[in-house]
């Protein structure tokens, strides 16, 4: 059972733009996804294999693969086949781009980052 203190924290942390709160809870709900979204925001025309994207992100390929697939499912990333090779790139949908831009801009604020970290950790429990 959650304590009163937990409820208070949860209420404080829910004080986010609803679109961004949903984005953090349902789309960028891990630190690897956060890294990947930031990477693709900064380098928007990247198109490569999971192995190379893992190298660019400085992460283990076994950690990056499933996260990339979830970003594809949530409409942030696009997966296309080149022969037998899967190539990942940023989805071209403008609405999604705008949401990613909004998230990255919001991340410049320390308070927002703290709240986003809280929701990601909470979602991992």
């Amino acid at each position: 059972m959650a304590s009163k203190e937990d409820d208070f924290t949860a209420r404080l942390m829910d004080d986010m733009d609803p679109a961004l709160l949903d984005f953090v809870k349902t789309k960028v709900n891990s630190f690897v996804k956060w890294d990947l979204v930031r990477f693709f925001h900064e380098n928007p025309h990247t198109a490569d294999t999971v192995e190379n994207i893992a190298k660019y992100a400085g992460r283990n390929v076994t950690a990056v693969g499933p996260e990339l697939d979830e970003l594809v499912e949530s409409g942030i990333m696009k997966k296309s086949m080149l022969g037998d090779t899967a190539i990942y790139s940023l989805e071209t949908d403008e609405e999604m781009h705008a949401l990613v831009d909004k998230f990255i801009l919001a991340c410049e604020d320390r308070h927002f980052r703290v709240k986003a970290v809280y929701h990601i950790i909470r979602g991992m429990r």
């Binding site: 025309h45 198109a47 490569d48 294999t49 190379n52 660019y56 080149l82 022969g83 090779t85 190539i87």
Partner: peptide, 17 residues
């Protein structure tokens, strides 16, 4: 302008497709 980050293996396959 577009600055595309990719790898030699992907670009080599891509240009032939």
């Amino acid at each position: 302008l577009k600055i595309v980050m990719t790898s030699p293996e992907v670009s080599h396959m891509d240009i032939k497709s």
